[in-house]
């Protein structure tokens, strides 16, 4: 095991930013709790992978990105989409399969895309997004754009050949990719030590001469600081960086997971380190939030979620006459 190479985020940067982090994490948490409820009510179907417990990673990393930067994420990407700025309504309607969803209901929970925020999916093939991220960075490099492509994936992706191919190519061609490994210690139900001969994940990136850091992914301030350093490095060198965020999924892998592979004790232990609860504690210590303030925040988020659900409920289904649209751009050929 490596030690954390970035400092724990002791210093709350400032009140405004800390409260922004709290709001973003809470938005994701409450939105996903509502999504789970709507899944049980059969409003949302297919696969639903919840990010609950891991919110600090997407929120912290997004803080280091500008509007021109690109994001490639996985099928557990509600948090990335929301922290990037996509509306809850567009995401909720997508999960409902409605026409006002961000992808007209063609993608669902696992495939959120957005032009304005340069979100290139929602990729549900483990490691499948990494080569695409490398290509986005290549296009930026060839066009002399200064953007960074942020590519998020789980540690399970590191057992795939595409991880190694992509890491080599990004390093070989010095492409501006911020690789963010969200290490939640389980590839679906298989523990890291049961799937990797070497569990020090940074050493795999270092083998391609990619600079690395590891950060406590349960601490949003620490993630934000580490991601900022990492993205600064990418911008300065023009080459890739590998950031490992150690985190934990509080909920099952998907809605079909009986959770047989983790002990209750282990899950409870990690829940004690909940990124939201610990940030609230620190904010309270600083006197930057109190219970009424927190209640107000929860109320605002509940209103936002309610209106997203209303929006999804009221949105129409796409006409089945349009079934074969978007197979080709010209819509005709098939």
């Amino acid at each position: 095991m490596t030690t954390m190479t970035s400092k724990p985020g002791q210093a709350l940067v400032n009140r405004e930013q800390s409260l922004h982090f709290l709001r973003q994490m809470l938005r994701i948490r409450r939105f996903e709790e509502k999504s789970a409820e709507l899944y049980s009510a059969m409003k949302i179907r297919g696969f639903l992978h919840l990010y609950i417990g891991e919110e600090a990673v997407a929120v912290g990393v997004t803080e280091a990105l500008g509007s021109d930067d690109a994001v490639v994420a996985t099928y557990r990407e509600h948090g990335h989409a929301m922290s990037r700025g996509m509306s809850m309504a567009a995401i909720m309607a997508e999960m409902y399969g409605k026409i006002d969803g961000c992808c007209r209901g063609r993608g669902g929970s696992m495939h959120l895309f957005d032009v304005e925020h340069r979100l290139y999916g929602g990729n549900a093939i483990v490691a499948g997004g990494l080569p695409v991220a490398v290509g986005l960075a290549l296009a930026d490099q060839m066009q002399n754009k200064k953007s960074v492509t942020c590519c998020c994936f789980g540690e399970g992706a590191m057992a795939e050949g595409e991880f190694h191919e992509a890491m080599n190519l990004a390093a070989l061609w010095q492409l501006p990719v911020l690789f963010v490994c969200e290490n939640n210690f389980y590839a679906m139900g298989t523990a890291l030590q049961l799937s990797e001969s070497v569990v020090d994940l940074t050493s795999k990136a270092a083998a391609y001469a990619v600079p690395t850091a590891t950060v406590d992914g349960m601490d949003v301030i620490a993630v934000a600081e580490a991601a900022e350093k990492a993205s600064d490095t990418v911008r300065e060198t023009g080459g890739p960086f590998f950031l490992e965020c150690r985190t934990y999924r509080f909920r099952p892998h998907s809605m079909f997971d009986p959770g047989l592979y983790r002990s209750r004790q282990e899950v409870e232990g990690w829940k004690q380190r909940c990124p939201i609860i610990s940030l609230i504690r620190r904010l309270k210590d600083k006197g930057w939030i109190d219970d009424p303030g927190l209640e107000r925040l929860e109320g605002e988020i509940a209103t936002e979620i309610d209106s997203a659900v209303d929006f999804a409920e009221q949105s129409e289904w796409e006409s089945v006459e349009d079934l074969t649209r978007f197979v080709y751009s010209d819509a005709g050929a098939n």
Partner: peptide, 18 residues
Amino acid sequence: PLSESAFTGAGIGAALGG
């Protein structure tokens, strides 16, 4: 490199990137 998946995927990404 001999990385068909990576350079084909990079082609997809580069196409998306303009």
